[in-house]
């Protein structure tokens, strides 16, 4: 699904991440931890080709990231659901239209997804806010809408950047359960989070591996969590 060989990335001349060599197999469940500013978001951006590696090689779904055309990148993103840390939406469309956006941009907007859409909006607890505009949402509501948007396309890979940063513990567990269910359906899940309690809760439900980014390197964290 995603393979990195000695991949490196730096915003300037200094590399922020280096020697990234790892393999995220299909159906796996990974957590990504590390101190703030360590490069978790950067790592995820490498995974959906918003950033291209400045060294080494990254392969996404069997394609070399650096060699993808713009359409190739678009096609790969249609297979990846991303929950961005800053949850950007189209502010002139309603919440439910935003959640359905990945369907619209691939021309699947008119199909029988309406009931799916409503079900999903219900799942993330936004039924009452479905017709609101994104600027009217709270931080937690935005994150839930972003998660719904990430999974509506039934993606093979879900990348979530702090998806539970702004929601209470009950909602966190609810969202976690949703991701665990999707993982059981065969989807690959990567969650960047500081929340150790969430990782512990996940470990009771699913075989999750924990990756730690620190000092520009990525390492597999031990069972000490």
């Amino acid at each position: 699904m995603i393979e990195m060989q000695d991949a490196a990335y730096g915003y300037g001349a200094e590399p922020l991440l280096s020697d990234l060599s790892l393999h995220l197999p299909p159906g796996s469940f990974h957590f990504l931890t590390g101190p703030s500013g360590a490069g978790k978001t950067t790592f995820l951006k490498l995974c959906y080709a918003e950033l291209l590696p400045t060294g080494g090689n990254i392969s996404l779904f069997g394609h070399t990231a650096g060699g993808l055309s713009r359409d190739g990148i678009a096609d790969i993103r249609q297979r990846i659901g991303v929950v961005h840390q800053d949850c950007k939406f189209l502010d002139h469309l309603s919440v439910s239209e935003n959640i359905a956006l990945p369907l619209s941009v691939t021309g699947k907007g008119g199909m029988a997804q309406d009931s799916n859409l409503n079900e999903l909006v219900g799942w993330v607890g936004l039924t009452a806010r479905a017709e609101a505009l994104p600027p009217e949402l709270s931080g937690g509501e935005r994150q839930r809408a972003a998660l719904a948007r990430a999974i509506i396309m039934d993606p093979d890979l879900i990348l979530a950047d702090e998806p539970t940063g702004n929601v209470d513990w009950d909602m966190s567990l609810r969202l976690l359960n949703l991701l665990v269910e999707l993982n059981k359906l065969g989807k690959t899940v990567v969650i960047a989070t500081h929340d150790l309690a969430l990782i512990r809760a996940a470990k009771q439900r699913v075989q999750a591996r924990v990756l730690r980014i620190q000092g520009g390197q990525i390492t597999a964290a031990g069972a000490d969590l």
Binding site: D71, A74, R77, F89, P102, V105
Partner: peptide, 11 residues
């Protein structure tokens, strides 16, 4: 945002 959710340039 459109690019991030997988829209092609032509769209």
């Amino acid at each position: 945002v459109l690019r991030l959710v997988g829209a092609r340039d032509s769209y």
